[in-house]
């Protein structure tokens, strides 16, 4: 058992994957000699060499394109997009090629590709370093979207994503990289994308979140228990696509109330999908409106710190939303 930050757990998983499977290689901007801008790949270039830890040119389309080609050739590429904000040039490769290859070839060709993407708001990040992109890609059939919120999950889900024969977008909360710590077992089985995690069991309302917001949700739920006697169930979705619908429906059939928290913009965010699912399949269990707490519909996380705090939901905002819905 070791105490790790989120970024350490990711580095640990990459190291293990490179050591265990000769087909695994990683590529991206500055991931080689520099060890990645967040140090996710630090030391790996020295350990595994330039053929397996491969610096790429500044072309996201190229990084993903190389990954798709290598995956079709039965390698196990792990691509890094330096910031989610830069993923858009690769949109066609991901959406048009990787996600649809299996369908297009009638099951003949698989794309066992992992794309690691640091996402989300971080103070001082501004326009080009703060985007959340899960909803853009969750709309696309054929892609899996994984968003771990604990070091243990980050490590075993990254192994699971590499094992998965489908393209997986592995979203990493960069604000949580060093903020989130946790115990990671010495040995742990890989976790394939899919199941949600009941981070805290409760009966008064269900709180759905992922990534950094799942971490904050647990903090807020503990305070709600301590300060208000409210017993909140926190469901860390971990995988957005395919969504663990059973866990979502089971939780709300127990509590009757649902709150979704995400740092992506509110409109057409993934919270809308959960709200729709609940209204569709758990209508008679609902004892209140399905509420969303999300970043406002503005183009970027503000650079100004005060406005940044207004933009990004935090434990205080989540607690207020819990109290509001519980009182309904």
């Amino acid at each position: 058992m070791a105490d790790m930050t989120l970024i350490e757990a990711i580095r640990c998983a990459l190291d293990e994957a490179l050591a265990q499977d000769g087909r695994v290689f990683i590529t991206g901007e500055d991931i080689g000699r520099r060890g990645g801008v967040f140090r996710a790949t630090q030391g790996l270039y020295e350990k595994y060499g330039a053929r397996r830890v491969m610096d790429s040119p500044l072309t996201e389309m190229g990084i993903v394109g190389v990954g798709i080609g290598a995956a079709l050739a039965d390698l196990r590429p792990v691509c890094e997009i330096q910031f989610a904000d830069f993923i858009h040039p690769a949109f066609n490769q991901i959406v048009g090629e990787a996600a649809r290859m299996y369908y297009r070839s009638a099951g003949g060709w698989r794309v066992p590709l992992v794309i690691r993407v640091p996402y989300g708001a971080v103070p001082g990040g501004g326009l080009y370093h703060c985007q959340s992109v899960e909803a853009l890609f969750a709309h696309i059939p054929g892609l899996k979207i994984v968003v771990p919120s604990t070091p243990r999950d980050a490590r075993r889900l990254l192994h699971g994503a590499i094992l998965d024969p489908n393209p997986v977008l592995f979203l990493e909360t960069k604000y949580g990289y060093r903020q989130i710590r946790g115990e990671v077992p010495e040995r742990d089985a890989p976790l394939l994308p899919g199941p949600a995690r009941i981070a805290r069991s409760g009966v008064d309302l269900s709180l759905f979140a992922w990534g950094l917001m799942a971490h904050y949700a647990e903090v807020a739920a503990e305070r709600a228990a301590r300060e208000d006697g409210l017993d909140v169930e926190v469901v860390d979705l971990r995988t957005l696509h395919p969504l663990d619908r059973d866990s979502v429906l089971t939780s709300v059939s127990k509590t009757g109330k649902a709150l979704v928290v995400h740092e992506d913009n509110r409109t057409m965010g993934f919270g809308a999908e959960i709200a729709a699912l609940l209204v569709d399949e758990a209508f008679e269990c609902l004892d209140g409106p399905v509420k969303r707490l999300a970043a406002p519909d503005v183009p970027a996380a503000p650079f100004n710190r005060g406005m940044f705090d207004f933009f990004l939901p935090g434990p205080d905002d989540i607690l207020a939303a819990i109290r509001d819905l519980a009182a309904y």
Partner: peptide, 29 residues
């Protein structure tokens, strides 16, 4: 709410007999 409406119907309850503790006297599940 749908949950309350279903319970009232299942048990053939008159809503007036149930005391509401929700916002503005709303009846909760």
């Amino acid at each position: 709410s749908p949950a309350v409406a279903r319970l009232l119907a299942e048990h053939q309850l008159d809503a007036a007999a149930v005391r509401g503790s929700g916002r503005e006297g709303r009846i909760t599940r």
